[in-house]
Design a protein around this nucleic acid. Structure first.
Lengths: 242, 242
DNA sequence: ACGCCACTTTGATGCGGGTCAAATACAACT
DNA sequence: AGTTGTATTTGACCCGCATCAAAGTGGCGT
């Protein structure tokens, strides 16, 4: 590894938020440059995870929230009866851990679906800085509220009794989120297994597999394992609307 | 109406939170007496609604949050395809409107299921006071987070593919919330119709009606229209766990 | 008391998606 | 290349819940 100028390194570390691709989606969105630096200083560390690694477990003490930098995660709970339910899939720019704000322990687990990295936001410091940086509190509330909105979308999807509507809605929704990240909206690489997706949609994995086939027969998509190409977005959206 | 001392009336108006039965569940929970008064002064008005009245519509401008004082509400969205989905039922002590924090408009509608009353919390003032009263911000976050937790419970319920588990889970959950309000945990008076409940559970109303019958045959509950008496809480819970 | 109307219950029938089972595809190892 | 293990697809069967239909119940206004 080449020797580099230490001063430059420190500067890079300190100004990571300012140069992050996600800064317009993340906490710093809309803040003054000086305030972005304060957020930056709060970030305890930036961690890398492999697929299958757990970011936090349900029941573990709540210390921090996590912003996803790269990769993808699933959030899930296990009921007392042992039934697992996937509550959501999370992409870069989204914050995980909001469910723990009410208590002192995480209510669900977060697991990386692929190689991922996150920024750790110690909650005690976040609270403190929110109280002094006026715009930050508001931006934070916007992100919490977006989480609630996403959950509502999930419920609306689970309410559909036609299974194919659920899958269509999921694909359309994922496509929108991809394009918000500046990625292609018609080519998706699913990071979750059929089993995960089925659980999320309230179906069994065989049904999901068959539905992908049906959507392909109908000419709306092209599927090959986890690669999905959307051919007819309008029809897909209409199918989701029922 | 008898003539009363004006000074006493003003005092009553000003100290409503301090004497409210819900003060330990609501925003003032855990605050100093002086801070409770500040919250009290923020409350714009306390409104009464009849069954079927709408507190706010999806798409209407977001100005305030509402704490339920008495009665019950349902929150619902309508998809672009016209499909209605009930997102939750809300009881006294719960705050409605969190989904709107991200934007400037309500994302769903809130409708009273029975005669109800609410306290109106103008959001601009709430933000301002949260910044100055240290405990209030935290209590506010706890309530937001509880909303997220409730939504997660709803999703976990929708994920069950046995319809009877969903109903059992709903009844058990409602029972817990009732007892948190100091009401009987084994006698429920449902404020929603079978159709509303079915929509919430992701079923059709006939199925819900039949399931109530089944639970009664099984000896777990006693039902008569909207009156439900829980006879065997343990079995009900077990059925919900699957 | 009466009729009206909304809500709920009950019945009959059919299909969508769950369940069980097996084959296939693919990645990651020797 | 061959082997192993996991993920996905495909097939056959059938049950639970949706659908359609009709009857029953209770509240409310006149």
């Amino acid at each position: 590894m080449p020797v580099t100028n230490t001063a430059v390194d420190l500067e890079q570390v300190r100004r990571q938020c300012a140069r992050c691709d996600l800064r317009e989606l993340c906490l710093p969105a809309g803040l003054e440059s000086a305030d972005v630096d304060r957020v930056d200083q709060m970030v305890a560390d930036r961690t890398n995870l492999a697929a299958g690694d757990t970011l936090y477990h349900a029941g573990s003490p709540f210390r921090a929230l996590y912003v996803i930098k790269t990769g993808a995660f699933k959030a899930q709970t296990v009921s007392e009866g042992g039934e697992l339910q996937i509550l959501g899939f999370h992409l870069p720019g989204e914050i995980m851990g909001f469910d723990a704000l009410a208590g002192e322990r995480h209510q669900c687990s977060a697991e990386a679906l692929e190689v991922s990295s996150v920024c750790r936001l110690p909650y005690a410091e976040l609270e403190r800085i929110c109280a002094t940086v006026p715009g930050l509190q508001r931006q934070f509330m916007r992100l919490v509220s977006r989480e609630i909105g996403d959950d509502h979308d999930h419920m609306a999807m689970m309410g559909r009794n036609q299974a194919i509507s659920r899958l269509a809605l999921f694909l359309h929704n994922l496509s929108k989120r991809q394009s918000r990240l500046g990625r292609s909206s018609d080519h998706l690489t699913l990071s979750m297994s059929r089993a995960d997706l089925a659980n999320y949609l309230g179906l069994v994995l065989e049904t999901v597999s068959r539905l992908f086939g049906r959507l392909q027969e109908m000419g709306l998509i092209e599927v090959r394992r986890r690669e999905v190409k959307i051919l007819d977005m309008a029809s897909l959206k209409e199918l989701g609307d029922n």
